[in-house]
């Protein structure tokens, strides 16, 4: 297990290096410098700026020095937000996005697991069909549609909840969290239903039933652990999805988090910010994929044995 974990971590390093390299050269091959979009700037100012940001050095030298900075965790200054570093911007946005993602995940897990397990316990009844159809609608209703519709109904027509902001007015965190969480709730419902159905048809569940255990105990104690493996395996990719979902949700609700910074950086062609955030977000996603893989293996004895057997 530890050797497997170590192997996976070692595998992640070349991936990260590839991300940094590809992103760096992509950004530097982009047509138009970072200052060209602005109004006419005298050439000597451009030259001074280029010197300040090391843009006059050969690209390899820039790459090597950038790599060195990144290893030390320094992403350099932002091109557009003058006087602020990429690190500061990430530090400002990260807690907000993390909080949003956390609430969204709670929404997704609570709704998704209740619906999915409920459906699996009574398959092919109304308790199965209704939540599963709702889940299908949830998957087909993208967040950039669900969010505005929720705003329209609960914010504008009913005036129950604030329509934008984060932590300014009480209740303004509810709609963004639901918008971001709903799609994942739908996936989790489908995955947990499938996983539970498969586990509930296994012999060891029949044994538990034959022992006369109550149905509640069987589900909570025996079935859940195996039945939720697909959900756990989904958590890693879900994390990546939460981040890209935050691009949309933070744009709709005007939340000053990482997602909104990223989209704005893309619009403003703020090259250092895009570069730094791409590397930062990629690292986060790779780490979370790793963690969810480990958790899935830890939960699944069959996989554990396969890994031991392979070594």
């Amino acid at each position: 297990m530890y050797r497997f974990a170590l192997g996976r971590i070692l595998q992640a390093i070349p991936v990260l290096l590839a991300v940094i390299t590809v992103t760096f050269f992509l950004i530097h091959s982009a047509p138009g410098g970072p200052f060209s979009a602005d109004k006419a700037v005298p050439p000597e100012v451009i030259k001074a700026l280029e010197e300040q940001y090391n843009l006059n050095q050969p690209i390899w030298q820039q790459y090597v020095s950038y790599l060195g900075d990144v290893v030390r965790g320094d992403f350099g200054p932002s091109f557009k937000y003058s006087g602020r570093t990429v690190n500061e911007l990430i530090a400002a946005g990260l807690p907000i996005t993390a909080e949003l993602a956390f609430y969204a995940m709670i929404v997704a897990l609570v709704i998704g697991l209740l619906a999915g397990i409920g459906a699996a316990v009574r398959p092919n009844t109304a308790q199965d069909y209704i939540p599963m159809t709702a889940a299908m609608i949830g998957i087909c209703m993208p967040s950039f549609l669900l969010g505005p519709l929720l705003v329209l109904v609960f914010g504008i027509n009913l005036e129950w909840l604030p329509v934008s902001g984060w932590g300014d007015i009480p209740g303004d965190k509810i709609l963004p969290s639901i918008t971001l969480g709903a799609g994942f709730a739908a996936y989790i419902a489908r995955l947990s239903r499938g996983g539970m159905l498969e586990v509930l048809s296994q012999d060891y569940i029949r044994t538990a039933r034959a022992k006369g255990l109550s149905e509640t105990l069987i589900i909570l104690k025996h079935a859940l652990r195996g039945g939720l493996i697909p959900v756990v395996a989904f958590l890693g990719p879900a994390f990546a999805g939460l981040l890209s979902g935050s691009f949309v949700v933070e744009t709709i609700f005007q939340i000053p988090g990482l997602g909104r910074f990223y989209v704005q950086a893309a619009f403003n062609r703020d090259y250092t910010l895009i570069l730094g955030m791409t590397i930062f977000l990629s690292t986060l996603i790779i780490v979370f994929n790793l963690l969810s893989d480990m958790l899935a293996i830890w939960l699944n004895p069959k996989l554990r044995h396969e890994i031991k057997g392979a070594k």
Partner: peptide, 16 residues
């Protein structure tokens, strides 16, 4: 393991 959504956005920014 790569975050593709981010990469597509990156490509769209760089190449128009």
């Amino acid at each position: 393991a790569l975050p593709f959504m981010i990469f597509i956005i990156l490509l769209m920014v760089v190449f128009g």
